[in-house]
Design a protein around this nucleic acid. Structure first.
Lengths: 210, 210
DNA sequence: ATTTTTCGGTAATATATGTTACAAATAGTA
DNA sequence: TACTATTTGTAACATATATTACCGAAAAAT
């Protein structure tokens, strides 16, 4: 178990032995979930740290019209909703297990004690929170400002290799979802970019910028 | 000064005396800025905590086409970019003073020591970071999913009083900016909502939902 | 090898929003 | 009061994207 959680960013700088010592003096509960069970409901307050030790969970959101919006999948080992332990902390999504899973729950007070006593865990947690905020802030600027054409070119620039070649390792509909647009619209824009000579299609999902 | 910074969320639970004792044993620098001076440049790494003690700063962003996008104004007393102290920490905006200002800078290591030694400051900082991430995550869902009509109705629902009346205390162009749309488009949608009998206009910037 | 499913390209059409311009209403100021 | 600047409403038109549908290619399953 300590070898498992060492793969989580929060604990990456601790040895399995340190983690064992630390967990041993921390109050926690280890819960086994069957596939499809609810871990935490949208609207509930998260009162501590959830560590997905094994298995896989998915987040889903219900909007006012009761449409279910799939938000993200988390595979073990990983933290679940680390940015919802503090602040108002009301979960915007319902988290359910996709497969049989083990989850560790550490109450907020115990978690605070843990990060106070261990400065690498503290800074790792701060890194996680800040990175999350920075990522979201960047992503928001990205979504707000640009059209599909610029989004796609920005994506290519971020992922190009030294030859300006990009292999897109996502389904097109996933990429479209990332850009918050529809797949045919993205597809058309890619076609336009090729027609305009801005990019070159080398193979299925492989392009070169020029 | 200690009375001033007590008004910052990070220090709200400490008495001025505690703050004085704490600051006295922390290495920091207090810098005076004239109006229009640069505090930190877009692309630079932030290496500690910036506390705006007096005055006012603004954040501006340059996109690839060198357009300047105004991001936000911060009035004293307040923290500047608290979510960029950790993580990758590269500033996405340039911060400059709008008026003569005083700014305290505490290096990252000193700040870590401060939050380790004072658990109310630690939890306040965690609250700030988590709230930021939660806010951004909510705002992103909002921007991604809905059209102007739904955004405006959501805004009305969040701000309505017991009689379903909303006084919009923003300029229309500010509201449009919040929604990441243009003012005429928002204006037209409001007109449509009135025409459809979904809302009623009581006065300039005052509406009733029905 | 054959069938079935998924994935990506494309087109017609509909819709939402942007752009630009101008006028009316309001607020601020001499 | 009159003048000016700001804010808002509105319209014509342009554009980007969504929606829907269909086809062919690729991948997966049988």
């Amino acid at each position: 178990m300590y070898y498992l959680i060492k793969n989580i960013g929060l604990f990456k700088d601790n040895t399995p032995e340190e983690l064992e010592a630390m967990i041993k003096k921390t109050a926690f509960s280890l819960i086994n979930y069957e596939p499809g069970q609810t871990v935490i409901l949208q609207g509930e307050k998260l009162n501590g740290l959830l560590i997905l030790l094994s298995g896989e969970v998915k987040g889903e959101m219900n909007d006012e019209n009761c449409n279910i919006i799939k938000v993200e999948d988390i595979k073990a080992p990983n933290l679940i909703a680390p940015a919802f332990i503090f602040g108002n902390g009301i979960m915007p999504v319902t988290v359910t297990t996709a497969v049989r899973s083990e989850i560790i729950f550490i109450k907020r007070d115990s978690f605070i004690k843990m990060i106070q006593e261990n400065s690498t865990i503290l800074t790792n947690y701060l890194d996680i929170l800040c990175s999350k905020a920075q990522f979201l802030s960047g992503r928001m600027m990205f979504l707000r400002s640009t059209n599909i054409r610029e989004k796609f070119i920005a994506y290519l620039n971020e992922n190009k290799d030294s030859n300006n070649v990009i292999r897109i390792d996502k389904k097109l509909h996933e990429l479209a979802d990332l850009f918050a647009v529809t797949r045919p619209a993205l597809s058309r824009v890619i076609g336009d970019l090729i027609a305009d000579g801005i990019i070159e299609k080398l193979d299925r999902n492989i392009y070169r910028l020029r």
